[in-house]
Simulated scan of single mutants.
Amino acid sequence: MATPEPTSLPPTKGRSGAKDVARLAGVSTATVSRVLNRSQQVDPATRERVLEAAAKLRYVPHGAARTLRSHRSKMVGAIVPSFDYALYARTTSALQQRLDERGYALVLAEHHYELAAETRIAGQLVEHGVDAFVLVGLDHEQRLFSLLQDYGRPYVLTWGVDGAQRHPSIGFDNRAATLAVTRHLVGLGHRRIGLLSAPPEGNDRARARGEGLRAGLAEAGLTLDPRHIAYAPISLAAAEAAMQQLLAAPERPTAVVATNDVFAVGAMIACRKTGVRIPQDLSITGVDNTDLGATQTPGLTSVATPITEIGRAAADQLVARLEGLPCETFQAFPVELVHRGSTAPPPSE
């Protein structure tokens, strides 16, 4: 039997409704609802007719009315430390795409590494009906967890693994990332290894990556010289300035572990400007294995981290929890050291 075509456009007054879409597409209002809620229980031909009818009528479901009926807005909030850090953008892009596939929208906010601001923003988003939350890292105020629990809002921590499993989390072992590069540098013969990092206060990723370096040094009977530590905001300019401090330090390090690729590339820029050769005079490593580091000359030795996988997994977990489906609430992805030309044995002295 031939597939019926949408009938002629009916006259409407004011805003079109689901009944108008159903009449135009030749289906029931229940079918319209299933299509617009991204249900998989509708055949493709029917789905296409409904979407075509909705487009002709410029029909958009009334979000407020739907929220009142279902007690859900189908909005997920992601509160990230900073919009400036490109990797958070890549994670939230993957998050948004997966949520959109499931019929959910993403609301994005930043807290500028201020945990009190994060709690305040979360409260505002709860007031506006946001259903669930994606948070970055393991450091958060207890007030935030109490707020989300009191209002029954599911949440997931990302970019880290909660070893105690107190809170649902999706991420990777940040300590293991820098432990791997430190072992690599020690294996090349380096004994004076410096650290270039974001400030550790309120930033568990920075703390864990610093701990990984210290653990790798301790394995070899070495320690991290306080004169060989530099903290800076995450930007190329700030990293370059911080690296200048390390280059001017007494008995400067022969290698530097940067806790992300932005820091590492900023350090490489500082070396070029001061005539320090990489890797002949000084080795540099990063974390996250971004195109920024891979396309340097020499290419940056770095640790590949699951940037997009985290976003997709966070979306899958929250949608499953909102819809009462089974899911993994604790996921740890592996990391992998990627060897390039920015590391070599230390210069002979």
Results as ranks from 00 to 15, higher is better:
176 A>R: 10
116 A>Q: 14
142 Q>K: 11
4 P>C: 09
47 R>Y: 00
127 E>R: 12
166 R>C: 03
183 R>Q: 11
262 V>I: 15
162 D>C: 03
58 R>I: 02
9 L>Q: 04
108 L>D: 04
308 T>F: 01
314 A>M: 03
175 R>T: 14
211 E>F: 00
138 L>G: 03
229 I>W: 00
141 E>V: 00
166 R>V: 00
47 R>G: 11
3 T>I: 14
107 V>D: 02
326 P>L: 06
107 V>T: 15
35 V>F: 01
143 R>Y: 00
230 A>G: 06
100 D>S: 13
19 K>H: 14
63 G>F: 09
125 L>M: 15
231 Y>A: 12
68 L>F: 15
162 D>N: 09
80 V>S: 06
46 T>H: 02
25 A>K: 02
22 A>C: 13
7 T>F: 12
109 A>K: 08
340 R>P: 10
94 A>E: 04
84 D>N: 13
318 L>N: 01
147 L>K: 11
227 R>Y: 11
151 Y>H: 13
283 S>P: 06
145 F>W: 12
330 F>G: 02
292 L>A: 04
5 E>R: 09
41 Q>E: 15
272 R>Q: 15
218 A>Q: 14
266 G>W: 09
36 L>C: 08
275 G>L: 05
53 A>Y: 01
42 V>C: 10
264 A>V: 06
349 E>L: 13
264 A>E: 14
10 P>Y: 07
230 A>D: 11
278 I>E: 04
151 Y>P: 02
275 G>T: 08
300 L>F: 13
90 R>L: 12
308 T>E: 15
25 A>N: 06
224 L>P: 03
252 R>V: 00
337 L>N: 02
